[in-house]
Simulated assay, not measured.
Amino acid sequence: MAESSRLSDVRRIAVLRPNAVGDFVFSLPCLHALKAAYPQARITYIGRQWHADLLTGRPGPIDEVEVIPPTPGVGLPPDAEVDTRRVEDFVARMQARHFDIALQIFGGGHYSNPFVTRFGARLTAGMRAPGAAALDRSVHYGPMQNRRLQMLEVTGLVGAGMVDMGGAPDLRATDADRREADAVLTPVPGRRLAVLQPGSTDRRRCWSPERFAAVGDALSDAGLLVAVNGTDAEAPVVRAVIERMRTPAVDLSGRLSLSGLCGLLDRASLLVSNDTGPLHLGLALGTPAVGIYWLTNLIESGALRQEGHRPALSVQVHCPVCGEENLTSRCAHDESFVDRVGIEHVIGLAMDLLREGKTAGRTARSAT
């Protein structure tokens, strides 16, 4: 939609997207577009507590974060039992903000569209699946759609176009991020750092530990220090990778907050990762990265900027256990759908990034 779709005298904008890390990163292009179109407006991101922890005081398009309470249908099952008084108090606070624009970019809108409409904004816009409640302006929501482009379409509904970042990253690391990372991994001038991310909340998207170990050894042989990252829950898979390596690697499982991970990725020369939050966080920070994707995930989560991004793609659609097609349904098995991605292919993509100088602008700091 053209610039003529812009509202006049816009002072407050609400954006609803209380998702996980990768989902938040997908929204950054549309958030930058909003800020560019309405530079005087205060953008309120309605998310989770981790959004507030990561974004409060961080340079970028978001001015403040409001933490949504547990709300049926908006991050919880529709029949979830919650403290309804907290939900009503939250809605009343949002109504008191007198938003000019309220955007729903959380999902199809069956529950989130009515929720956003209750804020009483001058204009509502967002995504709408078939049968969902109407907003003032909306774009179709369905499967097999690139979510970043889709959210840019939403901002287009209010007259905001994609912003040329001029090579700048979508997300900026802070000094606090770097201090935390440096406290965990002491920088050593001149030695480059590679980060492996072998975990994911969906085990079907996980490349096996022995494959990550082989990549780690190749990077170590090339002179990089290898660190393997994961949450506390992912510690077993992190250890499995390190135990299978013939060269030393650093175990980072559970040692970094999200802020500290930003600091680490900001100085990493390379990231090799499953399709999970840290991959998209690294790409947003400008970290050269090889992502291991399953077919539908690359369609929906593929980065808009391809500089420094190398996808390794699995097109397997049938479960390796039962043979059931998993594009339109999901079988009961959690076997990997990406293990057919070749080790040498991933190593080749990683070495290409290193050879092509995509890491030249990275901080020449690494860790011991």
Rank of each mutant, 00 (worst) to 15 (best):
L193W: 01
A218S: 06
F115H: 11
A132M: 00
A218Q: 04
G120Q: 08
D177G: 02
G199A: 10
A194M: 10
T117C: 14
A173N: 10
P143S: 14
S220R: 03
D217T: 01
C206T: 04
Q197Y: 13
R148E: 12
R205Q: 13
R204D: 11
Y141D: 07
A183F: 10
V195E: 04
G142T: 06
T124H: 06
H140T: 12
P209C: 04
D182L: 02
M162P: 15
R211E: 06
A181N: 00
N113K: 08
F119V: 06
L193P: 09
G166H: 05
S138A: 15
P187C: 12
S112E: 04
G216L: 01
D136S: 10
A129H: 11
R191L: 04
R137T: 08
S138E: 11
N146C: 01
T201F: 13
S112V: 09
D175T: 10
Y141E: 03
A213F: 05
G190M: 00
R192Y: 08
S200G: 10
G161H: 15
L193K: 08
A129C: 09
C206F: 00
D164Y: 10
G131K: 02
V184I: 09
A132D: 05
D170F: 14
G159A: 11
T117V: 14
Y141S: 05
S220P: 09
L185P: 02
T201R: 15
V163N: 01
G199M: 00
D164A: 13
A181K: 01
R147N: 14
G142V: 06
G120N: 03
R211C: 03
A160D: 04
F212P: 06
P143R: 15
E210I: 12
V139D: 12
P187V: 11
L152E: 04
L171D: 08
V188G: 02
D182H: 07
R191Y: 03
P114Y: 04
V184H: 04
L171M: 11
T155S: 05
W207A: 03
V215I: 13
H140R: 13
D175Q: 14
L157A: 07
T186L: 13
V158H: 05
G166F: 04
M127D: 08
G167T: 06
T117L: 15
P187D: 11
A173W: 03
V188C: 07
Q145S: 12
C206S: 08
V163G: 07
Q197F: 14
